[in-house]
Design a protein around this nucleic acid. Structure first.
Length: 464
DNA sequence: TGAAATGTTGGGGCG
DNA sequence: ACGCCCCAACATTTC
């Protein structure tokens, strides 16, 4: 029986795993491998790393129940693969295709050492299969989503194998450090399935409003699981399609469709990074590459620490620092605040989010930042500036989200929770909560000026 | 997946 | 009864 290595990267699951299924169907004795790549680990947010390590433990347990086990090795991937190939006389390497630029280069190098089969699985549709009729990639979401929806895909989920070929004991494997498992995001395939079930059974039908409410749990909170493939994009897509079919109520249907759209946004940004890898270095929109950003380390630090004096911004930034996750509405509000109110380069925000997020993914994070900053594909128009006070009143009407994350404001009544600076002096002083670091309406005008300045300049000197 | 500024409309108060 | 004004509510334009 010939041996193949199943190189696990972002598909930490046994269920609906086309890569594992491909290796097995070819009749290989499969060795599940995860490589701890120091280059990636040193960039990973501590909470994301912990989530990954916990996920590896879960996966190892699941593999052991199927008579296999996970081989974990530390090192530079090409070297590890070459060594393991020698040790096991592996004839082939299977992996789910990863479209990020680093992964693509890494995989191309690795393919020189061993027959390497890369299987589509990180997204429902491969980025190169959703194209305009002229063969060009989409750069606007709506037509992309139309084309995406028109493409068929197999509704047959791949069952997790009950039994796998054994892995010999003598194969060395790193032992994982003890980690503290997050109670907010317990890693693993089982938890991912539970979350999907819970969401599909009800919240999905109120998603249209629920997704915007900072103070309610209206979202699926599946992002970290999708990030590491503890659940497949196809599992999620099929579940949402079924939910759409299962309801006759038009409002409920629109909600379920809105959720599917979020999954398509994920595929859209994945495709954008695949076709335009330079977005990791610069704005997609060439006319907005030279905005006169302010480089104020103090402003940046105040934003990071959640001390801007705008409660909803600070609540969201503290939620991120404490939990490694932030509500999507919060991501838009805080991103708008950094790029527009503080006029700080969106890339600073992109980097900070990657250093904190449990679900941090280069494509989605970059896409989200470029979108909010107004410099990306299908971007929000640059003059769309979020008013943090209005956003808070609309999406956290009682201020419960703010009170949850800003202990200083825990005793503030609804009347002042969104505008603490207007509270009676005594109340504000006692709380210790800062007054606004910038005046929003002044900052808004400055941002409008800076963006239009960049646009005008680009028009005058198109060679830049 | 904004918000502010500006324009329009129509009901009601009032002389 | 009529014209005028005010202004809220809504619509449109602009940033």
């Amino acid at each position: 029986m010939a041996t193949a290595i199943w190189w696990i990267r972002r598909d930490l699951r046994l269920g609906d795993n086309p890569t594992l299924a491909a290796a097995l169907s070819e009749g290989y004795s499969v060795i599940p491998l995860f490589i701890l790549d120091p280059r990636l680990l040193k960039l990973a947010a501590p909470k994301r790393k912990a989530f990954l390590l916990g996920g590896l433990q879960q996966l190892d347990q699941a593999l052991r129940q199927a008579n296999s086990r996970l081989v974990i090795r530390m090192g530079e991937p090409e070297t590890v693969i070459e060594e393991l190939k020698e040790e096991t006389e592996a004839a082939a390497l299977f992996a789910e295709e990863d479209y990020s630029p680093y992964a693509t280069r890494r995989d191309e190098r690795t393919a020189r050492y061993i027959p390497f089969y890369r299987v589509v699985g990180a997204t429902v549709h491969h980025p190169a299969s959703v194209l305009r009729s002229n063969g060009e990639p989409y750069t606007v979401f709506t037509p992309f989503s139309k084309a995406w929806k028109a493409l068929p895909f197999s509704p047959a989920l791949l069952r997790a194998p009950a039994a796998l070929p054994p892995v010999r004991d003598s194969l060395r494997s790193e032992s994982l450090p003890e980690i503290q498992v997050s109670t907010l995001f317990p890693p693993g395939e089982e938890e991912a399935k539970r979350r999907l079930e819970r969401f599909i059974s009800g919240p999905i039908y109120e998603y249209l409003d629920g997704r915007n409410r900072l103070d309610l749990e209206g979202t699926s909170a599946l992002s970290p699981y999708l990030r590491f493939g503890m659940i497949s994009a196809r599992q999620v897509a099929l579940a949402s399609l079924k939910a759409i079919e299962d309801t006759a109520d038009p409002a409920a249907r629109r909600s379920a469709e809105a959720w599917l759209n979020e999954l398509i946004w994920r595929e859209f940004f994945s495709a954008i990074l695949y076709h335009f890898p330079h977005v990791l270095r610069e704005a997609f929109n060439p006319t907005l590459r030279d905005i006169p950003w302010q480089s104020s380390p103090q402003d940046l630090e105040i934003w990071r620490a959640g001390l801007t004096g705008y409660p909803v911004v600070d609540a969201a930034m503290r939620q991120l620092a404490e939990t490694g996750w932030m509500h999507n509405r919060g991501r838009m509000i805080t991103a708008s605040f950094l790029t527009k109110d503080l006029l700080i380069n969106w890339q600073e925000g992109e980097n900070w989010f990657m250093s904190q997020l449990v679900d941090g993914d280069p494509a989605a994070n970059n896409g989200g930042w470029q979108w909010t900053a107004g410099v990306g594909t299908d971007a929000a128009p640059y003059f769309r500036v979020f008013n943090p006070t209005l956003q808070a009143k609309q999406f956290d009407p009682q201020g419960n989200y703010i009170r949850r994350w800003i202990p200083e404001l825990a005793d503030f009544p609804v009347k002042y929770i969104h505008t603490p600076w207007a509270a009676p002096g005594e109340l504000l002083r006692k709380s210790g909560y800062p007054t606004p670091w910038v005046d929003h309406s002044v900052a808004r005008n400055r941002a409008l000026w800076a963006y239009s300045f960049a646009k005008e300049n680009a028009k005058k000197s198109p060679h830049l």
